[in-house]
Amino acid sequence: MSEAFITRVSKFVPNQAVANEEMEEYLGFINGKSSKSKAIVLRNNKIKSRYYAYTKEGVPTHTNAEMASQAVRQLFPGNPDELKEIDLLSAGTSSPDQIMPSHGVMIHGWLPETGTIEVVSPSGVCCAGMHALKYAYMSVKLEDKEKAVAVASERFSPSLRAEQFEEEVQELIRLEQNPYVSFDKDFLRWMLSDGAGAFLIEGKPNETGNSLKIEWIDGCSFANEEEACMYMGAYKQEDGTLKSFKDFTNEEIFNKSIFSIKQDVKLLSEKIVKLGFNNLKQILDKKGFDMNDVDYFLPHISSYFFESKIEEVLLENGIPVPKEKWFTNLATMGNVGAASIYMMVEEIFNSGKLKKGEKILLAVPESSRFSYMFCLLTVC
């Protein structure tokens, strides 16, 4: 089989960075009041800025598919004719613009220069971007494709705006209950960000400049053991099962904010770090890889609150990583879900700091029902 290399990396973010102090100017005030949880969540996640694909007035500026297409175009800044050479588009997201058609073909619609190519759209949440990468990696490694593009993108912001919760708040007022949305819905409003990242994967490294050889990509799911932790378009019942939006009336969908993104924060804190990073030890043993050989450790985290938790679990498993090897840009980019790991790789790839032979370990936990993806890259 061929080898597979990431030869180019790009990102696209919409508009200007939004600082913490401006967030509610974009997201709005639920029931006309500032969020009670905002300060607490921001203090823990330590995010300083993020990006939204709409204006303060609520006017959309980009679709998810459009942002993804812009990231793909930026892989070829000096020669857009190279778009014609792409033979696979593999696209991951957890926030598509529509249920159907697929997210991937909608991106393809923004890239008419590519011609007729294979398109695939792995679903999921944070791991969706890694699944997209793995499909592209395997296609090149099997010599089925020569120039594959993996892209990951998110457009969470419309689901975070105050008007999404207005019907629920009014229903609470009618029932003479506290007109504040629950913490599981408010929690993610202060963490999520919009944007896209893209990789070009080829069977040969760049003739000049660095490339990243994909050594392996491995993952695991604990959905057979654990209930859903983060969900959208569903209602979590007392027994832990999810009731689909399809089984609610239109009125119930609005009154319960069924299409808001929800997070079971207690379950998140208990499970997200231990499950995946305990399993990392088994994956490394299976691959015969020594954690001491890692030069850069890129963990996708939704909050800096989890940084010390990951550090503790790695130490417990005998695979510690010194903090000087860690890299994340969560503070400046926010949590861009499936695209976060692409944006971290983009920043470090284009930093000019990488040296031949260095090893980069990617770690992507997904809290939706506890899935994890890990990837080892070698600078060449």
Score class of each variant (00 low, 15 high):
133 L>F: 01
344 M>K: 02
93 T>M: 04
377 L>S: 07
246 K>A: 14
93 T>L: 00
70 Q>D: 07
133 L>G: 00
165 F>T: 08
127 C>H: 00
342 Y>G: 04
74 Q>R: 15
253 I>D: 09
29 F>D: 11
337 G>S: 15
81 D>K: 12
377 L>M: 05
150 A>T: 04
111 L>F: 01
43 R>Y: 09
111 L>P: 00
54 Y>F: 15
92 G>H: 03
319 I>T: 09
374 F>C: 02
249 T>D: 13
180 Y>M: 08
256 K>L: 15
85 E>P: 00
125 V>H: 00
77 P>K: 05
222 F>C: 05
5 F>Q: 10
120 V>C: 06
58 G>W: 09
10 S>I: 09
31 N>H: 13
68 A>S: 09
121 S>P: 00
145 K>H: 12
263 Q>F: 13
29 F>N: 12
9 V>D: 09
276 G>F: 06
229 C>Y: 03
268 L>N: 13
223 A>G: 10
352 G>F: 04
70 Q>H: 10
147 K>C: 01
355 K>M: 11
145 K>S: 02
60 P>R: 09
324 E>V: 11
100 M>N: 04
136 A>R: 01
298 L>A: 08
141 K>L: 12
358 E>F: 05
103 H>T: 00
156 F>Q: 01
247 D>P: 02
180 Y>E: 15
379 V>N: 09
94 S>A: 13
142 L>H: 07
91 A>N: 01
252 E>P: 06
221 S>Q: 04
243 K>M: 15
376 L>S: 04
379 V>D: 08
189 R>A: 07
97 D>L: 05
60 P>N: 03
156 F>C: 12
203 G>H: 08
310 I>E: 09
195 G>H: 08
30 I>M: 10
178 N>G: 00
46 K>L: 13
380 C>L: 04
312 E>A: 15
163 E>T: 09
265 V>S: 12
262 K>V: 08
238 E>Y: 11
366 E>H: 03
201 I>G: 10
46 K>N: 12
354 L>N: 10
380 C>H: 08
9 V>N: 08
336 V>H: 02
268 L>H: 09
133 L>T: 13
20 N>T: 14
349 F>R: 07
117 I>G: 01
224 N>L: 10
307 E>T: 14
378 T>G: 03
263 Q>K: 03
